[in-house]
């Protein structure tokens, strides 16, 4: 169990180092997803299965999908097409897949192996977390809901394109692709809905 903890921690550190040193945003995102998954494995080993599931669902699912959306929206034009050709024949997926394979083997060992033994103190069940969350921390839950509402409104306000601003930009010669990125507002809005629903 101790060995599993250290393997997951080493994978987390390696993938984080690789994530912040990549030059390409999508490569860095792949390594960042592997890093989040390995942190989730660390949580699982250390006795927090509920938090591990939340980490995978919200961080590696929702937040990373938001990042991927924005990166895909910003990479427009011919340079993006050239880059995509390079990715398809390149071997950039080898590194993340090796690290992810280590994690999968470790999780398979943990699930099929002896089990129940937890590194550190006893495992904290989701029931305990729920009791404490809606007991002394109820005001924190309300504050989190207010924060998510504020983020929703803020993201909607920042992500939309106001007509008069477009007019001003095109008069100044800045907004040259006014029609090309119009669906961007919808994507931001769709992404902004997600975390408030899941948390």
């Amino acid at each position: 169990m101790e060995l599993a903890f250290y393997i997951a921690a080493i994978v987390a550190i390696i993938s984080t180092v690789l994530a912040i040193t990549r030059l390409n945003a999508v490569h860095a995102l792949l390594y960042l997803i592997v890093s989040l998954l390995s942190v989730a494995v660390v949580f699982f080993v250390i006795g927090a299965p509920f938090i591990a599931a939340l980490e995978v669902i919200i961080y590696a699912g929702a937040i990373m999908v938001l990042f991927v959306f924005v990166v895909m929206m910003l990479n427009l034009g011919k340079a993006a097409i050239d880059m995509e050709k390079q990715w398809q024949r390149g071997s950039m997926w080898v590194g993340p897949s090796i690290l992810a394979a280590i994690l999968i083997a470790e999780v398979a060992y943990l699930v099929a192996g002896p089990g129940a033994a937890v590194y550190g103190a006893a495992a904290i069940e989701p029931k305990q977390v729920g009791i404490v969350l809606f007991g002394p921390y109820l005001i924190g839950v309300e504050l989190a809901s207010m924060l998510l509402l504020g983020a929703l409104v803020g993201a909607y306000h920042l992500g939309r394109r106001t007509p008069e601003k477009e007019k001003r930009e095109s008069r100044n010669g800045i907004g040259t692709h006014a029609s090309g990125t119009a669906p961007g507002g919808d994507l931001v809005r769709a992404g902004a809905d997600r975390p408030s629903g899941s948390a």
């Binding site: 919200i58 961080y59 938001l66 924005v70 924060l147 803020g154 920042l158 992500g159 902004a192 975390p195």
Partner: peptide
């Protein structure tokens, strides 16, 4: 986690802008 979700929403909208 919820704070990170909110921060990413606003941050990415700012990036787009």
């Amino acid at each position: 986690l919820s704070m990170a979700a909110a921060e990413v929403c606003v941050g990415l909208a700012l990036v787009l802008q």
